[in-house]
Design a protein around this nucleic acid. Structure first.
Lengths: 220, 220
DNA sequence: ACATTACCACCTAGGTGGAAAGCT
DNA sequence: AGCTTTCCACCTAGGTGGTAATGT
């Protein structure tokens, strides 16, 4: 998944162990198509039947609150597929649907059975964050030349497609629309976990930067 | 370091956490040179002054006994250098000296301060294994065409130097001398850790395969 | 004389979008 | 017609020994 979600976490108990995981949930029950002349995604019927949900457990799991808070937690190894029979542990999504990634912070002593193929448990000891500006629409081929250009310009692995001599003003115009020229780091805030026993903390969530339009994800 | 040391571990407490680490210690106090006409390493004076010892902590650390025992533990990411000012965390060795790798299994509750730059602690809760057939002589350039050929034939990254059409009988002759046509997996055996409280276990060590001659390691 | 370094071509391994073919 | 798959060139990133230059 590119650009990758990156989060910064504060307020964990430094000595407590946590898993961090991501899943991706449908935004609505619709299927979409892209209409060229209006440059918009339009509803094109009801969603396909749901697929078995999967969870991406961050590879640094299990780690202490201290370890998690000292780094930017990046989900750049998370992979998407539209193959419902996938056996590579990738997250399975339908193409041409809208989705929302969620970040879960799971206290170790709470996670009885965290698994890539089971839904993330919920309750005390699990905090879930989602950022509305990270909603995206899945595709198998890009529908919009501006998205393609952004991918090529931002992703080191697409360097071979860069046209260094091309018009830069057009690019700058895109940057005004798509504000992730650097994929932003989001911040997940907890009340001090020490208080959390008595008082159910209300996590506050702040965001840096925003997607004014959903990035498209190409399934591979 | 190629070929990499690979070990199989049995007899750990499945629920106990362990570090696994490797260090490399001098075999003697001598410096060597290779004599072509006799195809032998000869003593060429006393060893250079020792360098600050370093420890390679296996990247899967910390893990449970269960996790360690389920896999072959490979040290293929361990790197050597002759640069005494190295800041990449590589193990520092003198060229043209003889060395012996050691594998350490360290119970978590025993390791007060395991660090890449501190000697491995010793005592109850730490078991150290070494295999005499893994002694090697360090070089900056290979001294022996047979070693070069083995490296090229066995290391996927050296495929570019393979001469697929060359004489195979010569190669087979080498295989009889150097028995690591596949780098062997060594077995580290513990008495059940559950007994270890009362009775100081005497680890028994078994080896599969052997180096009849030391492999040379090229510093990079 | 011999050991070491710097740079190189050549690999492994894997992440990109393009183009053409295939599917529905 | 629109979406998906397959294969490809082109990258990043990094592990090989060879070779020529450089120490010592």
């Amino acid at each position: 998944m590119f650009p990758a979600m990156r989060v910064k976490i504060v307020g964990l108990d430094p000595h407590q162990q946590y898993y961090i995981a991501m899943d991706i949930v449908p935004v609505d029950n619709k299927r979409y198509r892209y209409v060229y002349h209006s440059s918009k995604w339009m509803v094109a019927g009801n969603a396909d039947s749901p697929v078995p949900p999967r969870v991406y457990i961050h590879p640094d799991s299990l780690a202490s609150g201290d370890t998690w808070m000292r780094q930017v937690v990046s989900f750049d190894k998370l992979k998407l597929t539209n193959n419902e029979l996938d056996d590579q542990g990738h997250i399975i999504l339908h193409s041409m649907h809208k989705y929302q990634p969620r970040v879960h912070v799971i206290r170790k002593d709470f996670s009885s059975d965290l698994s890539p193929t089971k839904p993330v448990p919920s309750g005390e000891g699990v905090k879930t964050f989602s950022f509305p500006e990270t909603v995206f629409t899945t595709v198998t081929a890009y529908q919009n030349q501006q998205i393609t250009r952004l991918k090529i310009d931002r992703n080191p692995f697409a360097k071979g497609f860069r046209d260094s001599g091309r018009n830069r003003t057009g690019l700058e115009a895109i940057m005004e629309t798509y504000a992730f020229w650097r994929p932003p780091v989001r911040t997940l805030t907890f009340e001090d976990f020490t208080n959390m026993q008595k008082q159910q903390a209300q996590p506050s969530v702040s965001t840096h930067g925003s997607y004014h339009r959903p990035p498209m994800l190409k399934a591979s």
